[in-house]
Amino acid sequence: MLSPQRRDQLTGLALLAPTVLLFAGLIFYPMAQSLFLSLHKVSTLTQRTQYVGLANFQALFADPAFLTTFFNTIVWTVGAVLLQLVLGVAGALVLNGRLVGRSLARGLLLFPYLLPTAVAVLVWRWLFNDLYGLINHVLMSVGLIAAPIAWLSQSPNAMITVILVGSWKFFPFVIIAVLARLQSIPESLYEAAQVDGASRWAQFWDITLPQLASVLSVVILLRGIWDFKEFDLIYLMTGGGPGISTQTLPILVYREAFQLLNFGRGAAVAVTMFGFMLLFFAVHIWATRHHETEGR
């Protein structure tokens, strides 16, 4: 006969077990496996692995292409997140206002987020095509440009285009998060500010933006993580090209591991990515915590 406490403990463990098992199998094991692979040379022919210490990492950091790729990833992530923030906050402000057909507009603005990436990319590649693309056609017919622009086959145009499309695809997420917060800012704060003599612009800077700070910090964290490891949109859009001018780290992982069958180096890139994200977002979380404890 078990004591009641003991029985509660066992029940608790039993309830936790499925999660623990899933976590171990689906998250911890692949992570450990990556780390393991990054320290080995793997022969896909013989399935034999050979310990090489940090050789994979050394080779990686010595490779200028890796540094370019790393830099690309930062440019893409920072550019896309910033643009999404601007579009998202602006969109949320518009949707939060008194707008005719507001619910329809809300539905339409979520559309890019719901569209499968492959479909969206197909459409955008067509729109941006330098020979028969609609965008060049329109820009030329209104006289903004004299000759077609090579949106996707020239650097730095390709990176700019990818950032534009990526931001279009993901900014609805920012809208949803910001809109929810906007609706919870008490109207009386704006009224107090009006009485205190604040212009519309001042109300935005002095009330709206500080009130959005906490949600924007979470949005930056999440969108930063997601965009940093974004693969399909960029890969389908440009394949990393022209050259490697839009190649980001996830694409490099894919190339090394699955195209060059160099699993050790692929894993080393993945582990480096993981380490960098861990570091960056630890700093981010620390900074926001710090800001929140003294800032609110």
């Binding site: 107090a192 500010a193 009485v195 002095d206 009330i207 500080p210």
Partner: peptide, 28 residues
Amino acid sequence: PADRNVAMVFQNYALYPHMTVRRNLEYP
């Protein structure tokens, strides 16, 4: 409201939550 030059105390006070008392008083 700004051009009328009125002062108002709100039922829920409507203090700016992200500002210190000093900044709140300084704002107008």
